[in-house]
Design a protein around this nucleic acid. Structure first.
Length: 984
DNA sequence: GCATCATCTTA
DNA sequence: GTAAGATGATGCG
């Protein structure tokens, strides 16, 4: 094939208007002759992908020359996705040109609001053109015509020639081209729109689309529309009258502003309609037979190789040698049929067996498969049984593991290949759903494989899948770490170990970050907001792409992480010896749940409610009017404006600050009431009401979810509900803790590390005074006060101890004089004096602060006791505040992060020694573990746990190969009782 | 309906 | 001064 770009000549005069009156209409054309069994003719709106991917993908995608490549990558991915999915024989990628079109000639406003194209995008365009050519795909640009018009023309021509058509675009204007042989597919989002899709989205038929746009206008294209007619009115009118012509004929019947304006603006309608109409009879000057894809895989391979090399697309370069690459001649009709389940939406008549090919791995070159018959499943099972490891992913009805039901399973045994086994899809009208295999039969067959510890399991956030599978009596998590091989992996945890600072470790984020791929998002297949459906309501062919992509991407991530981890032994150890075992234990803890006393919570709720009402009443009396006590805005205005109380400070958003710190300084009866009201309503809404609501209706147990890859330091977090912030400081708050109980015959046992972060400070700093205080077993805050003030520990007063405690905590947080002054309500000078005295007595601690800052600056990271690297990117930030914030975080991170390491080790150690029939681990609260244990075994178990936790660095850590010579003792305190309050 | 702010809870 | 999550109010679309 010759260079397709030679068609950039000017076949139409931009100042000559097309003849709209005779323009063929794609939406209403005859399609009876079309052969849907052939692959579709693919028409790509190249300009759409250019802009969409340029703005959606990160600008950090660059080659080493500094060329931003995000639009190139995005457009390439869209093209490859299309070729993999449809194996087309005919295809064209269409682009706009810079020159004006007949629409510009018609209207000065047409696209007048569009800003000039960014240079960073413009310089990517030549590469995209070259890429398209190198892939063997015809490329069309026509001066004076837009991509839309080329596509409109080609769509008409293609259907006339007997092809069905897939238009690849995200532009809603193109919906006017849809008929039962022409559909739209947005290859960036994965969304497919056919006639039914238009009806669903706008409530009108595709052939009404031009009238629809004409009536309601389109500001981005400069179409004005009829004033007073928006989306909804346009839809209603079209449904009633069918088209604008009929509307105008009956305009007297149309009431209100719409009717009036239809008359008034009737003259503008033909003009707007022309702007909205896509041209379908453009003179293209293109030999029709040239719109075939060049099927010779070698034709452009050198150009492709050169391009990939220059752009530094390493994966793509490597995949040139992979048989699955679409550039490797995958366009035969036979192949297209092999992947025909993805075409079900357009070729519903095609119901032949679609999965027979999976046994024949040699001829297979379509990457993703849907398993819908027993032989296909059989051969998949055989491959899984024989595999050393594979990716598994469950698709379910809910993101909440507790209520998730399995909808399907996906697998990958190597990169760029995946299988989806749909099980319980039940979308009305989805013909494939009748062909699904039986869920229980499939699960029974898979159980021995999933539970086989010698077959490694790879997954993204495996804890979730383990929970779901456990609902069907399959123990996935138990099989993971039992594996003697090193292949089991959770890609989310791997990413977290490698760099916790990248904030999000979801699969979409990882795909973007490590694979430069935008995945199909869940919202694209299931909708969003209130209209979102559960996965079982997603059509199987769409669901299959989504699920296969998940498994495929996970495998690709596994490859990358496996390589990264083999280059960093300690990271590999952190993943396999710390995080994955912790995940297993967390899974059990979440499933265990903690028992609550529902009646007690309900009583508390009522009691709080009565008090809240009484407080409100008193507040209204004092204020002289009713207002919302819970609104900081209204409260601020009441206190500082209406009542004229002095001391009002504004927050950055301009309203009065009414936080506890401000209010407690004000002596006023209303303030007292507000503080009490706040406390009670917090307790009621966040705890007593919420806990009773989330507790299991049958078992009265509360099951939290621990997030293991979220914090920047290695700590866990807890949600739904958060059981790591249950009140303890006030007497009323502690009542909540009394609702956490043990079942009959058992008690709650809590074990916490005493002052673990300060002990870590002693360890890391090696400070003599601090180390000595811990080694002598002193009250650390009193000892600090005595040391700084130069007196005996016994002579330290309560205030002196309190101040010392504040200093000690301040140290852990990277303290500044400003912060300490605020905490202790003293002047900044006094606070600084206090800090100086402290550092004089604890010079090692001062050195630690200086050294940690310096090493964070030099290395870009700090390390925990187990060598977890915590990156501190903001340490070089140009903004001083941000930089100082990063310095404080850098000082805190090794301490908080090491404490997190230690308690994870402790969980592993305790899990090993705790007799399963005598007690269960229930909660982790950063430095505390909570258990329920048999009442008659409390003393033994308590000792067992204490020993395991205190000795964890010399036993568990050492066994796993971490040599830590800890400078001070690790002290654990335990207590037990009928409830969590008593156990503390 | 969704995002952000202010507030309050924990280690 | 570190690290988190949940809630109600408020403002935007």
């Amino acid at each position: 094939m010759t260079d397709n770009d030679h068609n950039s000549h000017s076949p139409i005069n931009p100042n000559t208007l097309p003849n709209f009156a005779c323009m063929p209409n794609v939406a209403t054309m005859d399609t009876s002759h079309v052969d849907k069994e052939q692959p579709p003719f693919i028409l790509v709106d190249g300009s759409y992908y250019l802009f969409r991917t340029y703005h959606a993908l990160p600008k950090t995608m660059q080659n080493s020359q500094g060329l931003i490549t995000n639009a190139i990558r995005g457009t390439l991915n869209a093209l490859l996705k299309l070729m993999r999915r449809y194996h087309p024989t005919h295809m064209a990628v269409c682009f706009d040109t810079k020159s004006p079109t007949f629409r510009h000639a018609m209207s000065e406003e047409y696209k007048a609001n569009r800003p000039k194209m960014d240079v960073e995008l413009a310089e990517q365009i030549p590469y995209i053109h070259r890429l398209v050519a190198a892939l063997g795909i015809p490329l069309l640009r026509i001066e004076g015509a837009e991509a839309d018009d080329i596509i409109g023309t080609l769509a008409y021509r293609a259907v006339a020639e007997g092809h069905h058509v897939v238009i690849s675009t995200g532009d809603k204007d193109m919906m006017q081209l849809i008929n039962d042989c022409v559909i739209l597919e947005d290859s960036f989002t994965g969304k497919i729109t056919d006639g039914a899709g238009v009806v669903e989205k706008f409530g009108i038929e595709p052939h009404q689309m031009i009238d629809f746009l004409t009536l309601m206008g389109d500001s981005s294209d400069g179409i004005k529309g009829v004033p007073g007619i928006g989306k909804k009115t346009a839809k209603d009118l079209l449904n009633k009258y069918g088209n604008i012509e009929a509307m105008l004929a009956n305009v007297a019947d149309i009431k209100g502003r719409a009717g009036k304006n239809l008359v008034e603006y009737a003259d503008d309608i033909p003009f707007n309609a022309q702007l909205a109409t896509i041209v379908t009879d453009l003179e293209i000057g293109q030999d029709w037979t040239d719109l075939k894809i060049n099927t010779d895989p070698c034709a452009h391979i050198d150009e492709l190789r050169a391009l990939y090399t220059e752009l530094e697309f390493r994966n793509e370069l490597a995949s040139l040698d992979h048989p699955n690459h679409p550039a490797n001649g995958s366009q035969s009709v036979a192949h297209a049929q092999a992947d025909s389940e993805s075409q079900a939406q357009i070729a519903k008549s095609l119901q032949s067996s679609t999965t027979d090919n999976i046994t024949d791995s040699k001829s297979r070159d379509s990457a993703w498969h849907t398993i819908l018959d027993a032989p296909a499943f059989d051969s998949l099972v055989k491959r899984l049984e024989a595999a050393p490891h594979f990716v598994i992913d469950t698709e379910t009805t809910s993101v909440y593991w507790r209520q998730a039901e399995i909808v399907g399973l996906s697998f990958a045994l190597q990169a760029h290949e995946a299988y989806y086994v749909p099980l319980t899809h039940r979308l009305e009208g989805d013909e494939l759903s009748a062909k699904q295999l039986d869920r229980d039969t499939v699960l029974a067959r898979l159980k021995p494989i999933l539970e086989n510890p010698n077959i490694g399991k790879i997954g993204q956030h495996l804890k979730y899948d383990a929970h779901v599978l456990s609902h069907y009596d399959i123990d996935l998590i138990g099989a993971i770490h039992a594996s003697p091989n090193n292949w089991a992996m959770d890609t989310m945890l791997a990413s977290y170990v490698i760099n916790a600072a990248i904030t999000r470790h979801g699969m979409d984020d990882l795909a973007r970050h490590y694979l430069q791929t935008q995945t199909i998002s869940f919202e694209d297949v299931a909708g969003k907001g209130a209209k979102q459906v559960t996965f079982d309501q997603v059509a199987i062919d769409i669901a299959s792409d989504y699920a296969c992509e998940d498994a495929d991407i996970t495998y690709q991530l596994f490859d990358i992480f496996h390589k990264k981890l083999s280059d960093d032994e300690n990271n590999a150890k952190l993943l396999h010896e710390l995080e994955i075992p912790t995940a297993e234990i967390l899974c059990q803890m979440e499933a265990n749940g903690i028992l609550i006393k529902r009646s007690f919570l309900n009583e508390l709720s009522e009691r709080f409610d009565e008090e809240i009402i009484a407080l409100e009443k008193r507040a209204y009396e004092i204020a002289g009017e009713e207002f919302n006590l819970g609104s900081p805005k209204q409260l601020g205005e009441m206190l500082f404006d209406k009542l004229g109380i002095p001391g009002g400070k504004k927050t950055k958003s301009g309203q009065y600050s009414t936080g506890e710190a401000i209010l407690s300084k004000i002596d006023h009866p209303l303030v007292e009431i507000v503080l009490e009201y706040r406390g009670l309503s917090k307790l009621k809404s966040t705890y007593t009401d919420a806990l009773a609501n989330v507790a299991d209706a049958k078992s009265d147990r509360v099951h939290t979810s621990y997030h293991q890859a979220l914090t920047s330091t290695g700590r866990l977090s807890s949600t739904d509900p958060n059981l790591q912030n249950i009140p303890i400081r006030t007497a009323t708050g502690r009542l909540i803790r009394q609702a956490f109980i043990a079942p009959a015959g058992r008690v709650i046992l809590a074990a916490d590390y005493s002052q673990i972060e300060l002990r870590l400070m002693a360890h890391f700093s090696g400070d003599k005074n601090l180390t000595q205080a811990f080694n002598e077993g002193l009250d650390i805050h009193a000892a600090t006060a005595a040391e700084v003030l130069g007196k005996e520990v016994a002579e330290v007063t309560a205030t002196e101890r309190r101040n010392a405690k504040a200093i000690n905590f301040g140290l852990l947080y990277g303290m500044s004089a400003f912060g300490l002054a605020k905490q202790l309500q003293m002047s900044r000078g006094e606070a600084q004096e206090y800090i100086d005295m402290y550092f004089e007595r604890y010079p090692g601690v001062k050195d630690y602060m200086i050294n940690t800052r310096a090493s964070a600056y030099e290395q870009g990271y700090v390390e925990t006791i187990l060598g977890r690297k915590l990156y501190t990117p903001d340490i070089t930030h140009s903004n001083r505040m941000v930089k100082q914030g990063a310095e404080r975080a850098a000082i805190n991170a090794p301490l908080q992060g090491s404490a997190a390491d230690i308690i994870k080790l402790a969980m592993i150690a305790v899990d090993k020694v705790l007799p399963k029939d005598q007690g269960k681990m229930l909660l982790q609260v950063h430095d505390e573990l909570v258990f329920e244990v048999d009442s008659d075994k409390v003393d033994e178990i308590s000792q067992l746990i204490t020993d395991a936790m205190q000795d964890v660095l010399t036993t568990t850590a050492a066994e796993k190969g971490w040599q830590v010579d800890f400078a001070v003792p690790l002290l654990v305190e335990t207590d037990s009782g009928a409830n969590w309050d008593e156990a503390h």
